[in-house]
């Protein structure tokens, strides 16, 4: 039982870290066409995530792999029930990855602009779809003994869409703050401007989301049962407010750190409310997929715990090291002089 809880926590952590890290890459992709005015500026923005995006995306594969290994039944049901939504997500992630690599490989403006559109669409779509998917997971999927009774359209219910919008706005703020610290001069000012302009909408959507969650989901049951847990959503709200405070004070780095915390705590808020469910059933809780009825055997969970506790710290250590290597802001001069850059 402890193992299942350990893996539930790890599961939540993997998703939270994935959204924190890929969130700013997705945000960059949604925004680079908007913030940049010239091709040189676009390249600066793409190269600002260049060295790290691939490693960030692996957190998704690890979250997926961990779901498979620790909670195989949930993995199987989640992926087959959400077939079409996940397919669209997959196509978007495929296009985004190759678009980064291909964009600079031809001089023609048509070529570059086409890939810019591709980057934009393939960044917006995952941000939205992840939100829609998690919104629906929070609310529960229509499943019972005879299987799943939903469709792609039924996922697009008001709460699902609201969560999708929340994710998109969250990543826009997160991504533009990242770009503000990774660029210099006017570009950095413009990036920060987007964050500041988007922040009020994010706040409004976040408040509506927290209120609507009371009606659309059972997430608050855990909080009402153990009120001390309210610290988690409170921290999320505090981090969101602090993002604006730091931004107003002119500390872009502080604002980005707070937006990282916001993403982490938003995911933590949802996951804490879910426990011990992984996917609740909206028809009857008896059919919910929980960490107890969908987990692997104790043997596998123990093995995976050992693997995670050895390798995840190693991964985090070398990732921090690599972020340090590339910590300096990216400049247009540097990008134009570097034949290896995107």
């Amino acid at each position: 039982m402890e193992l299942q809880i350990t893996w539930f926590v790890l599961w939540g952590v993997l998703w939270a870290v994935y959204f924190m890290l890929d969130g700013f890459v997705l945000g960059m992709g949604i925004l680079h066409n908007v913030i940049a005015r010239t091709d040189g500026e676009k390249r600066v923005l793409i190269n600002a995530v260049g060295p790290v995006w691939d490693g960030n995306e692996v957190w998704l594969l690890t979250a997926g792999g961990a779901t498979f290994a620790a909670f195989p039944t949930t993995y199987a049901m989640m992926f087959s029930y959400l077939y079409t939504a996940l397919l669209l997500l997959l196509f978007a992630l495929i296009v985004r990855g190759v678009a980064f690599e291909f964009r600079g490989k031809e001089e023609s403006q048509t070529w570059k602009k086409s890939w810019d559109v591709a980057i934009q669409v393939s960044s917006f779509l995952p941000a939205l779809l992840f939100g829609v998917a998690f919104g629906n997971i929070f609310a529960g999927l229509p499943m019972d003994a005879s299987g799943y009774h939903g469709s792609l359209l039924s996922l697009l219910n008001p709460y699902g869409i609201l969560t999708g919008v929340l994710f998109v706005l969250l990543f826009i703020v997160h991504g533009s703050l990242y770009l503000s610290i990774k660029t210099v001069g006017d570009l950095s000012v413009r990036a920060k401007g987007i964050a500041d302009k988007t922040w009020p909408s994010l706040l409004v959507v976040a408040v509506v989301f927290l209120a609507y969650t009371k009606f659309a989901t059972k997430l608050y049951d855990n909080y009402l049962g153990t009120p001390v847990l309210f610290i988690v959503p409170l921290l999320a709200v505090a981090a969101l407010l602090a993002t604006r405070v730091f931004s107003a004070k002119g500390s872009n780095l502080g604002a980005f750190a707070c937006s990282c915390a916001t993403v982490l705590m938003v995911v933590a808020t949802g996951v804490t409310g879910l426990f011990p469910n992984l996917i609740p059933s909206s028809i009857d809780p008896a059919y919910s997929l929980t960490i107890f009825n969908s987990s692997s055997s104790p043997y596998t969970l123990k093995l995976m715990t050992i693997v995670a506790f050895i390798f995840v710290p190693i991964v985090i250590a070398y990732k921090i090291w690599v972020y340090r290597i590339f910590r300096a802001p990216v400049t247009e001069e540097e990008v134009l002089g570097d034949k290896h850059a995107y």
Partner: peptide, 29 residues
């Protein structure tokens, strides 16, 4: 999944990270 999921998860943790993080270092470093 109990037996097949493990190598896939280990692949991501042990191998994909290594490959994907250091390809960034190699391209941009």
């Amino acid at each position: 999944g109990d037996i097949f999921g493990a190598p896939l998860a280990i692949e991501a943790t042990v191998a994909f990270f290594l490959e994907s993080v250091f390809i960034g270092v190699w391209i941009f470093g």
